[in-house]
């Protein structure tokens, strides 16, 4: 159902007249601190998990900022920081080629195999 009426959305307070928000520019300003991605191990034995990003001038600062911003409530025991530009991401357009071939390889999953009930500990 697409019954469209005008609404005012929270967090959206309108703009000055005659002045549309600029669409993003391709490059960020020269002197801005680079962006870093933060990964935190929430407790011993678990993987580091991406929790967010932040700006920092160097790796030491990124590490300290990550500690100050993302572990204020005891969220972690270990931190990784990676400068965002160093992350290579898969292209969403390739998703079909990359991930769909795995869909029909159900023999990779343990539940594929029917075994006699008498067999224990497997």
């Amino acid at each position: 159902m697409k019954n469209l009426i005008c609404r005012f959305f929270y967090g959206d307070y309108g703009e000055e007249k005659n002045n549309t928000t600029n669409l993003p520019q391709e490059e960020s300003p020269e002197n801005q601190w680079p962006l870093w991605e933060v990964f935190i191990r929430s407790k011993q034995g678990l993987d580091h998990k991406h929790v967010g990003s932040l700006h920092a001038a160097d790796a030491a600062m990124a590490m300290e900022n990550a500690r100050d911003v993302y572990t204020r409530r005891n969220e972690g025991v270990s931190i990784w920081v990676v400068e965002s530009k160093n992350i290579h991401a898969s292209n969403p357009d390739d998703a079909a080629a990359l991930f769909e071939p795995a869909n029909d390889k159900i023999y990779r999953h343990p539940s594929f195999y029917e075994l006699p009930d008498e067999l224990k500990h497997m």
Partner: peptide
């Protein structure tokens, strides 16, 4: 001077 440092000094 930066949001991150605001948070750091407050800690």
């Amino acid at each position: 001077p930066a949001l991150e440092q605001d948070i750091a000094l407050t800690n």
